[in-house]
């Protein structure tokens, strides 16, 4: 379990990193927190010739509360986000999702952006980004583009990011103040990737019915999955048991048929997904009612 040889580069400014990527293209890999990349290197599942370590690019180290969204620079650790006062105050759903990630030691190293780019379908943050219609800011030597979450995740560990691009920033929209939210997941052990999980945001009308809803899932397909159909079903309802039951039922069909491994068959994942739907919506709904 030792990586094959690679060249290690640790540029201090973004342009230098982009220049390196320009030269090396697919022969290079970006190293952020290393919590996913280093294990892959050690078991020789990836063998890049160049490792571009962006941890010294100080310009990527910021948490910025902007008008419409929270912006997190690419080398910000998950743990820093978790401990950030502004995030704690204004984005509790992000905190709830982040604390499900591995263990504190892992969050001390792992970055928010790294988790998004790694695009593990069982990871919390990609699903959160989808749920909120967040954005990914990517830079290459030719310029910057902003990618919508919906357009980013294409397959298992695969995104639309180009090998010459660096993600510089993740943008997570704020929730409306009256919204209720929740993230729940089923794992074998505390800190494991989810067998199935769901994230939901529901916004009530003053009359106490559901004005809008968002729900996304992780661990159930090759990418994070948005439950658009379920979102529509919920509008105008009070999320009573019958509606939750219907939503749970609809959620089962989102589970990829052949997604079967030693921990969960697709049948079991469907059951977990249904249960996650019930629980996440119930909790989210309770939270928004508590507020008003």
């Amino acid at each position: 379990m030792k990586p094959p040889q690679f060249q290690y580069c640790a540029p201090g400014v973004l342009d230098e990193a982009l220049g390196l990527l320009d030269q090396c293209g697919t022969d290079a890999k970006i190293l952020a927190g290393g919590q996913s990349l280093i294990p892959l290197l050690n078991v020789r599942l990836v063998a890049p010739l160049y490792l571009v370590d962006i941890n010294r690019v100080a310009a990527l180290d910021y948490i910025d509360a902007r008008e419409n969204h929270l912006a997190v620079g690419a080398i910000v650790r998950q743990r820093s986000v978790e401990q950030s006062p502004v995030v704690r105050q204004r984005h509790p759903l992000l905190i709830e999702a982040i604390t499900y990630i591995g263990h504190m030691q892992i969050r001390n190293r792992g970055t928010l952006a790294g988790s998004i780019v790694h695009a593990d379908p069982a990871a919390e943050l990609p699903a959160l980004l989808c749920c909120l219609d967040g954005e990914i800011v990517a830079r290459s030597s030719t310029g910057e583009r902003i990618i919508k979450a919906e357009q980013f995740f294409t397959d298992y560990l695969t995104t639309t990011l180009d090998a010459r691009e660096i993600v510089t920033e993740i943008r997570l929209p704020w929730l409306p103040p009256q919204a209720g939210w929740a993230c729940i997941e089923f794992t074998r052990r505390a800190g494991d990737y989810a067998l199935a999980g769901a994230i939901a945001v529901v916004v009530p009308t003053p009359a106490g019915t559901c004005q809008s809803a968002r729900i996304s899932y992780f661990g159930i397909a090759a990418t994070p999955v948005r439950g658009y159909e379920i979102e529509q079903m919920l509008i105008g309802t009070t999320l009573d048991d019958a509606i939750l039951q219907a939503a749970a039922h609809a959620a089962e069909s989102l589970v990829q048929d052949d997604l079967s491994d030693i921990h969960a068959t697709s049948t079991y994942r469907r059951a977990l997904t249904a249960e996650a739907t019930r629980r996440v919506l119930r909790t989210a709904w309770q939270r928004c009612q508590n507020r008003s």
Partner: peptide
């Protein structure tokens, strides 16, 4: 062997 890493061979932790 399908459970050949600690991601799949689950040793319980203090939490379990």
């Amino acid at each position: 062997l399908l459970s050949s890493t600690f991601m799949d061979y689950l040793i319980p932790t203090a939490a379990e």
